[in-house]
Design a protein around this nucleic acid. Structure first.
Length: 294
DNA sequence: AATAACTCCAACCGCAGTCAA
DNA sequence: TTTGACTGCGGTTGGAGTTAT
């Protein structure tokens, strides 16, 4: 099996994604639906390999992604699942539809593993130092518009690129903001902080992914699986539908549908384990007090 | 105020699994 | 059945941001 062509290092751009690239990718997925990543670089002109595009979409741009601020319930669930499933992050992520496997993996490696280790070591009462405080990273001007409408965003991007930063960070962006983003906005910021504004894009896409929203792309049945907001469907990467014509990949696809059955088993397991600290948690899972673990 | 040490996370890498021809 | 193309997953790393000295 040869390496996929996308991995050949021929003029493929690496490193952090720029707003422009995100915009192109989001625009493309809007029109064609997720999947068929191989075609993305070709059709969009992005100098990224298909893998990179898929990853960017799955971990960052996909609708319905929640970032940062893991709740105790989520932590608890992750710990449980990690103990149960091991480092099968995709499987774990399928029980946390709003989280990506990468996010969970990172969170485990940076926070939970330490906590668990400490707890296992004996004492346990270690407070996570909310360290980096980078969770609520600020947004730039054009990204904020992206929350609202991709066309507006496109215009904002043009503005942002042509205007000086100071000017670009000013009021205009507020105009369309309110309707879509009632949540408080962190202070504006440097382009470097761009990456953490992904949720905006996701939020934007929620609209068109939802029934009633903008077309879920050219007949790609795939969109269904990408709708995370909707229902139980763990969107996760499983949502990466194959192309319409592509057969429904059975593949590993933990995220696509299989979650429910496994979930009830897990639920039972959690129920037993938590011995009735019935705190309604994620997805209705009764969760025990996180302190049990930390 | 400067800088060293540490933390966090986005992105990359390579392997494994699946499907179609 | 075999082979090539492609996607998905998990481990790892680089760099930016934060905190401590």
């Amino acid at each position: 099996m040869g390496r996929p062509p996308c991995c050949e290092k021929t003029g493929v751009k690496k490193g952090p994604w720029t707003p422009e690239e995100d915009l192109v990718l989001v625009d493309y997925v809007q029109n064609h639906g997720p999947g068929n990543w191989r075609a993305v670089p070709t059709n969009t002109g992005l100098m990224r390999c298909s893998k990179s595009c898929r990853l960017r979409w799955t971990n960052y741009l996909r609708p319905g992604i929640k970032r940062g601020n893991f709740s105790h319930q989520e932590e608890n669930l992750i710990v449980h699942l990690q103990q149960l499933l091991g480092n099968r992050w995709a499987a774990i992520a399928s029980y946390l539809p709003e989280r990506t496997d990468n996010d969970i993996k990172n969170y485990w490696n940076t926070h939970l593993k330490k906590k668990v280790n400490k707890a296992a070591a004996g004492s346990g009462a270690a407070e996570p130092k909310s360290g980096g405080g980078r969770a609520a990273a600020p947004k730039g001007q054009w990204e904020r518009r992206l929350q609202t409408d991709i066309h507006t965003a496109r215009q904002a991007l043009r503005d942002a690129l042509s205007l000086d930063p100071a000017a670009a960070a000013l009021p205009p962006a507020k105009l369309e903001l309110e309707p879509v983003m009632p949540t408080p906005q962190p202070p504006p910021a440097s382009p470097a902080a761009y990456a953490s504004s992904a949720e905006n894009i996701a939020r934007l896409l929620e609209g068109w992914m939802r029934p009633g929203g903008k077309a879920s792309s050219g007949g790609s049945g795939s969109s269904a699986s990408a709708v995370s907001g909707g229902g139980a469907s763990g969107s996760h990467s499983g949502g990466t539908a194959r192309t319409p014509e592509g057969s429904t990949g059975t593949s590993k696809a933990e995220g696509v549908g299989p979650a429910p059955p496994a979930f009830s088993m897990l639920e039972s397991w959690l129920l037993e384990d938590s011995m009735g600290h019935g705190d309604a948690g994620i997805m209705g899972v009764p969760l025990s007090d996180p302190c049990d673990f930390f």
